[in-house]
């Protein structure tokens, strides 16, 4: 699913190309040859759990961290991530907002505008526009420390856009946001791409966020496992996911294996089996088990979390006891 901007795309070289990034922290290899291409106007996601290397990739691309080897190309031209030329064209949204809590919203945006040398005549109109974008027009003169988490996140995205960057790099842009704020953030990002053709590169560990990207690179232990669209990833997982919750999950899993030849997996959510035509399986499973044995049964289509689990053998969340 590409945005309309892509339809007019004529240039062939990727906007941003990352080739063979290697980062080591002492003996630990944090990035082990990470490569991917991001096309113009695309929303490209780096999906992986904590420690997969997605934040390290973010830090290398924004020039905050040095790589042992690897190359970055912008519009086909090799560039050091530490070069000003890259920083001039890039907007960066940090997980912990790059804002000063003691300054007002307006002052924070003004600082950003000056740092990026937005011409002084254009500065105040641009700040008005961005406050409007962040839905903070009425709070421009309030200090950032008085804002809620969601408001700070909106202001942080606005700050990163102050110089109209062509490429926006976001580190976990919706972490800690509730469902409504998550939706609003994505509406805003999609509108931005539609209107200005900005290219978005983001890191995430949220499957529902990954599903919104045009393309995804799945990262695990510093390596790219696969790159594809969320639709193709999900299509590769055949079947439905049935989650059974009840007493004695180990025995439950044994019953599923002996009676139905189904290999079940235990997760924090319950006992999980992947089957074709799940709706037909549910009555059979429920009937086969004595009354009271199950407390709930659920059916769902695979999500990006299931895709990740299948490809890496690991869950996206660091939950103790999960697979």
């Amino acid at each position: 699913m590409r945005g309309p901007f892509m339809a007019h795309e004529v240039q062939t070289s990727p906007h941003l190309s990352v080739d063979g990034l290697v980062v080591r922290f002492g003996k630990r290899t944090a990035l082990d040859g990470v490569s991917f291409d991001v096309h113009r106007g695309e929303i490209f996601g780096l999906l992986g759990p904590n420690g997969s290397g997605k934040s390290t990739t973010f830090h290398v691309l924004t020039g905050l961290l040095g790589a042992a080897s690897g190359q970055v190309r912008l519009d086909g031209v090799a560039i050091e991530p530490t070069e000003r030329a890259l920083r001039r064209q890039m907007g960066v949204v940090f997980q912990a907002a790059g804002l000063d809590p003691h300054l007002t919203c307006r002052e924070n945006l003004r600082c950003a505008a000056r740092l990026h040398r937005v011409p002084s005549s254009d500065r105040e109109p641009r700040i008005d526009e961005l406050l409007d974008f962040a839905e903070l027009s009425d709070r421009g003169h309030e200090r950032v420390k008085t804002l809620s988490g969601g408001m700070k996140r909106r202001l942080e995205i606005a700050r990163a856009l102050v110089h109209r960057p062509r490429l926006l790099v976001l580190d976990e842009p919706t972490v800690g946001l509730d469902e409504a704020s998550f939706e609003r953030t994505w509406e805003r990002l999609l509108a931005l791409r539609q209107r200005e053709g900005v290219t978005l590169l983001l890191t995430t560990h949220r499957p529902e966020e990954a599903a919104r990207c045009d393309r995804l690179a799945l990262l695990d232990q510093g390596k790219v496992l696969a790159i594809d669209t969320p639709e193709k990833f999900k299509a590769a997982i055949s079947g439905d996911i049935i989650t059974l919750v009840g007493k004695a999950p180990d025995e439950l899993a044994e019953v599923l294996l002996s009676r139905f030849s189904l290999t079940a997996r235990r997760t924090d959510e319950g006992v999980v089996v992947v089957v074709d035509r799940g709706h037909e399986w549910i009555p059979r499973l429920v009937e086969a088990l004595p009354y009271g044995r199950l407390s709930s049964v659920s059916l769902k289509r695979p999500s990006m979390a299931d895709v990740f689990l299948k490809l890496s053998g690991r869950t996206l969340f660091d939950l103790p006891g999960s697979v």
Partner: peptide, 10 residues
């Protein structure tokens, strides 16, 4: 904090 955004500015 704020310094992050200064470090990624030109």
């Amino acid at each position: 904090g704020f310094l992050q955004s200064v470090l990624v500015a030109p």
